[in-house]
Amino acid sequence: MTVLLIIALLATGVAGTVVALTPDPQRQAVTLSVYGLLLGTVFVLAAAPDVALSQLSVGTALVPLLVLLTVRTVRRRGGRSGGSGSDGS
């Protein structure tokens, strides 16, 4: 099991990096969702199902929904972002 935990931790580190360095928030939201799944796996492997439930319930639907709704509202108001390659408009 320890090996699995190590793999999951490393994958979390990589996924976190990808999320933090993805400039476009819409793409970031998708990656964030996967990141949440990986974090949830780490918690299960570390024998923390309560935390895993929490992370999965917040990370898979709630936060991405908030992020995407924000992006939509921002773009609708003509808010410009400096992020490269906005695949929205």
Binding site: A11, V14, A15, T22, Q26, R27, T31
Partner: peptide, 20 residues
């Protein structure tokens, strides 16, 4: 786990939002 962390993450981190 390897599938989740490998292909899953890779596909989710490339291309447009829809492709991800």
């Amino acid at each position: 786990l390897v599938v989740l962390a490998g292909p899953g993450l890779l596909l989710a981190s490339r291309g447009t939002a829809v492709a991800r």
